[in-house]
């Protein structure tokens, strides 16, 4: 398999995977249980989910480490096992991918608000990201995927941690924006322009957005990023915003609808197209068909 950076530099478009949480629930993740605990207790489940996305045609498969920073694991009493939890996640995806897909090492927000808005010490959060990312890199991840960030300051801590702990790996950062009357902003008030400039300056190789929006709004976000940066853009929409039908929570966008929007994303010059909440292997299959 060619190096990821080489492929992106050549203008290749890659397909990401879809949601993990719902599939882990279908495989027995219990309410209130840390999803990351399955990396240690039931690695075969992680391998199964990764296989579903590999078979669906994903080029990048995400590790089950969104909440794998010590700050998040501490809430479940698992922070002492940060290295083991993250290592096991990479190893499971590597076994499933068998060299046919890149292992995308997920790093989510710490779950704490940084000072002065919250109680979290930035230095402590940064050290936690570094610890997580070092474990992910040492286990053989192909890229660092910092995702669902809403606080630019925290995203920058994570990017710098990645540069320090995994200097040889490409770093992808995607933030979550909301549509307002004045354009797209994160809930913390970061604009796409601020994100594009600051994240690139901090050393991010791939920029973009995931979660928070369906694929139509993501087309608008992608176009804004394209106008602001020359770096590869990654877009991973939700399958729309959740609706309740007969008491069950349903994400409304079908694979066909998302595939249609993916054509717009391709036209906007997006380099990595995947899915977030509510997307399934069927969505990934539809994206694969569009990307070719």
């Amino acid at each position: 398999m060619k190096d990821l950076s080489t492929r992106l530099a050549a203008g290749d478009v890659l397909v990401g995977d879809g949601a993990w949480g719902t599939l882990l629930q279908a495989h027995g993740l219990r309410p209130g249980e840390a999803p990351e605990s399955l990396n240690l207790s039931r690695p075969a489940v992680i391998e199964d989910v990764a296989s579903l996305y590999l078979e669906a045609g994903a080029d990048l498969i995400t590790t089950n480490t969104f909440g794998g920073s010590p700050a998040r694991l501490r809430q479940f009493g698992l922070d002492g096992q940060t290295e083991a939890v993250n290592r096991a996640a990479v190893e499971a995806v590597r076994r499933a991918a068998r060299g046919r897909a890149y292992v995308s090492a997920s790093v989510g927000p710490s779950g704490h608000l940084l000072k002065p808005y919250g109680d979290a010490e930035p230095a402590e959060i940064a050290a936690g990201f570094e610890r997580q990312i070092r474990a992910l890199a040492e286990a053989g991840a192909d890229l660092v995927c910092i995702e669902t960030m809403t606080d630019l300051a925290e995203a920058l801590l994570a990017v710098r941690a990645a540069r320090a702990a995994a200097p040889d790996l490409p770093v992808m950062v995607t933030m979550t924006f909301e549509q307002t009357r004045r354009g797209f902003f994160t809930v913390m008030g970061t604009s796409i322009e601020q994100a594009a400039r600051s994240l690139a300056e901090a050393g991010a190789d791939i920029l973009g957005s995931n979660c928070g929006n369906g694929s139509r709004a993501m087309v608008a976000i992608a176009r804004e990023f394209r106008a602001l940066t020359d770096r590869p853009i990654a877009i991973q929409p939700n399958a729309g915003l959740p609706e309740s039908r007969d008491g069950a929570l349903v994400y409304p966008e079908t694979p066909d609808f998302m595939a249609e929007q993916a054509r717009e994303l391709l036209a906007a010059g997006v380099a990595i197209i995947g899915g977030c909440c509510g997307t399934t292997p069927d969505h990934v299959r539809a994206l694969r068909a569009v990307v070719g």
Binding site: R182, F185, M188, G189
Partner: peptide, 9 residues
Amino acid sequence: REIFLPDVL
């Protein structure tokens, strides 16, 4: 969204 979460906090 004339102001954001930090302002509220």
